[in-house]
Amino acid sequence: EEPGTYGVALYRFQALEPNELDFEVGDKIRILATLEDGWLEGSLKGRTGIFPYRFVKLCPDTR
């Protein structure tokens, strides 16, 4: 996996908008950016989108 910051999904998130990223509990999401209003941008399984930061637990930065 690529170096960078990752978050592990604490809850299932179902995308409601085309720019959102849906995921299941336990998915490991690569964090790409921190956005305003409590949203993160991340990538998972070749898809990129935004999601609420409270749905993931950030992992320590590992290489």
Score class of each variant (00 low, 15 high):
Y11K: 15
E36F: 03
R54L: 05
P60I: 10
K57I: 05
A15M: 04
G26K: 04
F23H: 02
E1C: 10
A33W: 04
G42H: 09
P18E: 13
V25M: 11
A15Y: 02
K57W: 03
F13S: 06
L35D: 04
E1R: 12
I50E: 08
K45I: 03
V25Y: 07
T34L: 07
N19D: 09
V56G: 02
R47I: 06
R12E: 06
F55Y: 14
K45C: 07
D27L: 04
E17P: 00
I50S: 05
D27A: 07
W39A: 05
F51T: 03
L35G: 08
L44Y: 08
G4L: 13
V56E: 00
S43G: 03
R30E: 08
I50C: 09
L16T: 15
E1I: 13
N19S: 09
T48I: 10
C59S: 11
G46Y: 01
D22T: 12
I29G: 02
T62W: 08
G42R: 01
W39V: 06
F55D: 04
E36D: 12
R47G: 04
W39S: 05
T62G: 14
F13W: 06
A33H: 13
I50H: 03
V56Q: 04
G4N: 13
G7C: 15
F51Y: 06
E36P: 11
R54K: 15
L44F: 10
Y6H: 06
V8Q: 07
L10I: 14
T34Q: 10
E41T: 08
E17T: 11
V8Y: 13
E20T: 14
E36H: 08
G38L: 04
L40N: 02
G7L: 01
D61G: 12
W39N: 07
A33T: 13
T34E: 13
D27S: 03
G26T: 01
R63H: 14
K57C: 07
E36W: 04
P18A: 10
I31E: 05
F51W: 05
Y11E: 13
C59H: 10
G26V: 01
T62H: 14
P18W: 07
Y11C: 11
L44N: 05
E17A: 14
E20G: 09
V8N: 03
R30V: 02
Q14Y: 11
F23V: 08
R12D: 11
G4C: 11
G7W: 00
A9F: 03
L58E: 03
E36L: 03
R63A: 14
T34D: 12
W39Q: 09
L40R: 04
A9Q: 01
L16F: 12
T5M: 14
T34N: 09
I29D: 03
D61T: 12
R30T: 04
V8S: 03
T62Q: 12
I50W: 03
L32E: 08
F51A: 00
L58Q: 04
K57T: 11
R12L: 04
G26D: 05
D27Q: 03
V56F: 06
A15S: 15
R30P: 11
T5D: 05
D37N: 11
P52C: 03
E17D: 10
R54S: 14
L21N: 01
E36G: 11
E24L: 06
G42T: 00
P18I: 08
D22P: 15
F51I: 02
L21D: 00
T62D: 14
A9R: 01
N19Q: 10
I50P: 00
Y53S: 15
R54W: 09
K28Q: 04
A33F: 03
R54I: 05
E24P: 02
I50M: 09
G4A: 12
Y6T: 07
T5F: 12
R63T: 15
Y53E: 15
I31Q: 12
D37T: 08
E2N: 14
I29M: 02
Q14K: 10
Y6D: 02
T48D: 01
E41Q: 12
D61V: 11
A15E: 02
L58G: 03
L21V: 04
G38A: 01
N19P: 03
P3M: 15
L32K: 05
F13M: 12
L16N: 15
E24V: 06
C59Y: 13
E36V: 02
L10Q: 05
L21E: 04
D61E: 15
W39P: 02
G38K: 00
Y53W: 14
F51D: 01
D37A: 07
V56N: 03
C59L: 13
L44W: 06
P60C: 11
D27Y: 05
L40E: 00
R30I: 07
L21W: 00
G42P: 01
L40K: 00
E41N: 06
A9I: 02
V8R: 09
G26H: 03
D22W: 04
E36R: 08
E41R: 13
K45Y: 08
G4R: 10
L58K: 05
L16M: 15
L40F: 08
A9Y: 05
R47K: 15
K28L: 05
R12F: 00
E20Q: 14
D37V: 05
G26W: 00
T48W: 00
V8M: 14
V56D: 03
E1T: 12
F51Q: 00
Y6M: 08
R47H: 09
V8K: 07
A9W: 04
Q14H: 13
F13N: 13
D61Q: 10
F23P: 00
Y11R: 15
G42V: 05
G26P: 00
L10H: 05
E20W: 14
E2R: 08
D27V: 00
Q14G: 03
A9E: 02
G4Q: 14
D22A: 15
E1F: 09
Q14W: 05
G49F: 02
V25G: 06
D37K: 09
G42N: 00
D22Y: 12
T5R: 10
I31F: 00
L35T: 08
L32W: 02
T34C: 08
T48N: 07
K57V: 04
T34W: 10
A9D: 00
D37P: 06
T34Y: 12
L58T: 09
G46E: 06
T34M: 12
P18R: 13
D37Q: 09
K28P: 05
R54F: 09
V8A: 03
E24R: 07
F23N: 01
L21T: 06
D27P: 01
G42W: 06
R54D: 13
L58V: 12
A33S: 14
G38I: 02
L16R: 15
F51R: 04
E1H: 01
Y53K: 15
R54G: 13
E2H: 15
I29Y: 01
L40I: 09
G4T: 14
E1N: 08
V25D: 00
G38C: 01
E20P: 00
L44V: 13
A33R: 14
E41G: 02
E41F: 11
E24W: 07
